[in-house]
Design a protein around this nucleic acid. Structure first.
Lengths: 349, 349
DNA sequence: GACCCGAGGGCAATCGTTTGCATAACCTCG
DNA sequence: CGAGGTTATGCAAACGATTGCCCTCGGGTC
């Protein structure tokens, strides 16, 4: 009664009050618990209701446009059927694509997702994670795991179900691409083209992506008997200015590298800009390889050779893994296979 | 009791059960209702509790790490403190940026947001909107309003509190940039540079953004005594291939336009590609103007002149407007001011 | 000294759903 | 035909927070 009054007072509330189990029960002439069981998605529970009764109730529910109230259900079961997702930035198309995959798979499994930006800052990561947990999400997908801070360990210790995506951390369930292999693919491509003096724009040290892509790349060159000197491997931010700054440094070295591997497409765009600024031609004078193969890569004036990673799929797998863990199944890390897309930035032309 | 059992069974549940009002009440030696009032954000309610008692309770809650259970609160109040957000695609940086603004402002007001992609498809828009409403969001921010379908009218009729963002629709509360003015800015820039024969890549007909930007542009040229012929205004998708296709058509016209206004930066990138493919130089032979000024615009090899729109701010204002409406205040449409960033794609060099 | 007033806080109902247990009807089999 | 089992349904108690109403107590007023 009080509530109805509140409703009426707030002029903008949704019009007709939502249908409840009780209303269906009344119309069907059965008890609300029967309706609840008939509408359950759990086969075992629904089995307790006569097939015919269940069918009638479901038809009636459909007709009345019944939608389960998540608040009631959450209160009783202690589960919200919501997953929290943390990403560095949603405006980064890589993470946005991964998130789309997460959300799609979660929706299929009957979960909604809530996403938050952390800007890759430990302080913000903690605050956002807490906010999501305050919302009582059932689990977390973390797209911003850092090797240099212990938020993940802490969450795991609190027994929060969680899955890492994009970046790995030892001992945690994660879904990533095989970044070591990806780096190797880039190296083999450049080796095949005859490059002998190369450099790496290696990304942030705290991100497994940059570290492992770099490692795979260096391994392959070392195995080919052409170890890349440390001076030719520089850390960087993951964005255009970051790549540009790193490349300006590398292009100043003598002898100048004939190709640069950037562990991220945006950094690679920065590298290309630096190459142009130095009066050189991308693909002719200097080869450039990126990573992720974002749509932009193919659309650039000089199209960018890039290691393609299945970003959307990664998100899907991460979400499915988490949902399985919530059902009590053990979580298992996955590394998806990257492939290389060769384009003008290394082939010339 | 049943619930505890369930908890224990699902091995992956968060460890210690969350603190409840009842626990605080017990420890503080007061009734749970007093705790509820002491912790209320509503000044009037909190006034009912002695200042000192309230302070003690708040301190204790803090110490125990109390976090209000949203399910319990939602069940009682009928409000979830969640906002639904619908966007065409989150991988579109324009919408992603707007969404970041929405989420930030919502968080400040104590709301969480849930976002969903609709791919600009009416069928999907409806399904996603229904899914969000099934989650009992308190209101919707729609970033994908189409003038050619009546979902918005329908939602409004059901008295769902809603605010449009980015795109407008007559008679609805919306927060957009002043797109007519934006188009006019682009036109005045080109007129000032001496362009007399121009063309427009106009975007989708169902989106107010494209329509109004085009209108402002055409108005300004008409007022200058240089009306743009209909043949020089072609609709397009909002992405790179869309802009490219439209531009290929326009560059085939004789006499060829000396400048092209694309109502969206991605379409503008497509235009630039088409110009290059035709063996012409952007900024020399053909001027190009985009819209939104996404970060990429300045980073392109030939930097793109673009009408900058305050995307993040738009999201913030939209969310704040919706929250105010939920508080019973009337909603009011806003049009934010765009500005023009002149760069090499029109200035040359 | 009787009365009123206001402040502070307790009581209990309520939101909608789920689920362990109780019950009733029916079936099967010896 | 009755004991034991199965099947279908009802009952009621939670889950946690909010809020209208009522009670108590202290102080002020006439």
């Amino acid at each position: 009664m009080e509530r109805q009054a509140t409703r009426a007072a707030a002029g903008t509330r949704a019009g007709s009050a939502p249908v409840t189990l009780a209303q269906i029960a009344r119309q069907a002439g059965v008890h609300v618990s029967t309706v609840s069981r008939a509408l359950s998605t759990d086969e075992a529970v629904r089995g307790g209701v006569a097939t015919e009764t269940a069918a009638q109730i479901r038809a009636l529910a459909e007709e009345l446009g019944y939608q389960r109230d998540p608040a009631g259900a959450a209160l009783r079961t202690g589960r919200s059927r919501m997953l929290g997702v943390l990403v560095p930035r949603l405006t980064d198309i890589v993470l946005a694509t991964i998130y789309e995959g997460i959300d799609a798979a979660a929706a299929t499994a009957g979960y909604h997702t809530v996403v938050a930006n952390t800007g890759d800052e430990p302080e913000l990561q903690r605050r956002r994670a807490d906010a999501l947990l305050a919302r009582r999400v059932d689990g977390l997908v973390l797209g911003d795991a850092r090797s240099d801070c212990d938020l993940v360990a802490e969450l795991a210790h609190r027994r929060i179900p969680l899955v890492l995506v994009s970046r790995r951390l030892p001992g945690r369930v994660s879904v990533t691409t095989d970044d070591v292999l990806g780096g190797r693919l880039a190296a083999e491509h450049l080796l095949g083209l005859g490059h002998r003096r190369v450099a790496v724009v290696a990304g942030e040290r705290y991100a497994s992506t940059g570290v492992e892509r770099t490692q795979g790349f260096l391994d392959a060159f070392a195995e080919a008997g052409l170890p890349v000197p440390e001076s030719h491997v520089v850390p960087s931010r993951f964005d255009v200015p970051g790549g540009r700054a790193a490349a300006e440094h590398l292009l100043g070295l003598t002898p100048r590298p004939t190709a640069v591997f950037a562990v991220n497409d945006f950094a690679a765009v920065g590298v290309m800009a630096a190459v142009r600024d130095a009066g050189l031609t991308v693909g002719q004078d200097v080869g450039v390889v990126g990573y992720n193969d974002v749509p932009l890569a193919a659309a650039l004036p000089v199209s960018l050779t890039s290691v393609r990673s299945p970003m959307y799929r990664m998100g899907e797998v991460a979400a499915t893994t988490l949902v399985n863990m919530l059902d009590g199944k053990p979580g298992r890390s996955r590394r998806l296979r990257p492939t290389l897309e060769a384009r003008a930035s290394t082939l010339g032309g």
